[in-house]
Design a protein around this nucleic acid. Structure first.
Length: 300
DNA sequence: GCATGTCAAGTTGTG
DNA sequence: CACAACTTGACATGC
């Protein structure tokens, strides 16, 4: 059975996630910085709990958390540890409640680090920074019971094979908690499903199949083949595959199909996904409204 | 109060 | 060579 997932934010429901900027925070002495960050982290923890409550109430089976859940956690100057925050214990209580609620309702939780997380980089400091960021998201993932941290393969630097070899090398150097959660997604500029399958075979990393990216950057595989091959990379883990779906804001014939539309056109839902056991993250700007509309349109 | 410009990080591709 | 696109706001600032 297909379960639909909501990504990061709400359009109408009053559930918000707060952040701040490094530039602004730099102006305060460290104790006040930590106090401000603490308030944001506690707010975000409570909002994540509300988000899961909303999902459970509306038959939404998965939620993707914001990367900036703990704002600036890994920043080189402004970074901090959870237990340095004045509200650390209240935050831990919230996260533990979320973990229980998530498990009780069978909801899936995932993280999707930003574009700065590049495990294929030839620059040691970039790969090291990626490791720090992944360690942070893993810390939160462990506290709330999230099972997936999904990344793109990054840049090719003129040679995809070498870039993927560096990705695999850096992957093997990551802690077990990160490795067991990490997944890799085909993107719309560089790495296709066909490119990533050898990496997945070699490392055991599950492949998240984004059909919109596949349509923007085809690789000779049909959607049915890509679906089957991507799903096969999940079998070893015993977990349900993750797919991503969006519709083009300006239409397929517009010359710029990449930007996401407010809602999903049901015609963009691949016929070969019907009846599968899979989680489909809905990447649509109308957020919870789009998930609920698609659920209705597909009679899920 | 409300509108607007800015925001840590990387890479690619366009103008 | 500079800069927008990725995602997508939310925030601080300035009027």
């Amino acid at each position: 059975m297909i379960r639909l997932g909501l990504c990061c934010l709400f359009r109408e429901e009053p559930i918000t996630f707060r952040s701040t900027t490094a530039r602004y925070l730099t102006g305060f002495p460290r104790p006040e910085r930590l106090a401000r960050l603490s308030a944001l982290c506690l707010h975000n923890a409570r909002s994540l709990g509300q988000a899961l409550g909303y999902a459970a109430a509306h038959g939404i089976g998965a939620f993707r958390a914001l990367s900036q859940f703990f704002p600036l956690y890994t920043h080189p100057e402004l970074g901090y540890g959870l237990d340095e925050l004045p509200a650390a214990s209240a935050i831990r209580v919230e996260l533990a409640q979320i973990a229980r609620f998530r498990a009780a309702h069978g909801l899936r939780l995932s993280f999707h680090p930003d574009q700065f997380i590049v495990l294929s980089s030839p620059k040691p400091e970039v790969a090291a920074n990626a490791g720090r960021e992944l360690a942070y998201q893993t810390l939160v993932a462990e506290l709330v019971g999230a099972e997936v941290i999904n990344v793109h393969a990054g840049g090719a630097y003129g040679n995809k094979q070498e870039a993927l070899a560096r990705f695999a090398k850096h992957f093997r150097e990551l802690p077990e908690g990160v490795r067991s959660r990490l997944t890799v997604e085909n993107d719309d500029r560089t790495f296709t499903v066909r490119d990533l399958l050898p990496l997945c075979a070699e490392t055991g990393i599950p492949l998240v199949y984004d059909v919109h990216h596949h349509r923007c950057l085809p690789d000779g595989l049909s959607e049915g083949e890509a679906t089957r091959l991507a799903a096969a990379t999940w079998e070893r883990t015993g977990r349900e595959p993750y797919f991503h779906l969006s519709s083009p804001r300006h239409g397929w014939g517009s010359g710029r199909p990449r930007p996401h539309a407010d809602y999903i056109d049901p015609a963009d839902f691949p016929a070969c996904w019907r009846g599968l056991d899979a989680t489909v993250d809905v990447e649509a700007k109308a957020k919870e409204l789009a998930v609920r509309r698609l659920k209705r349109d597909l009679s899920l």
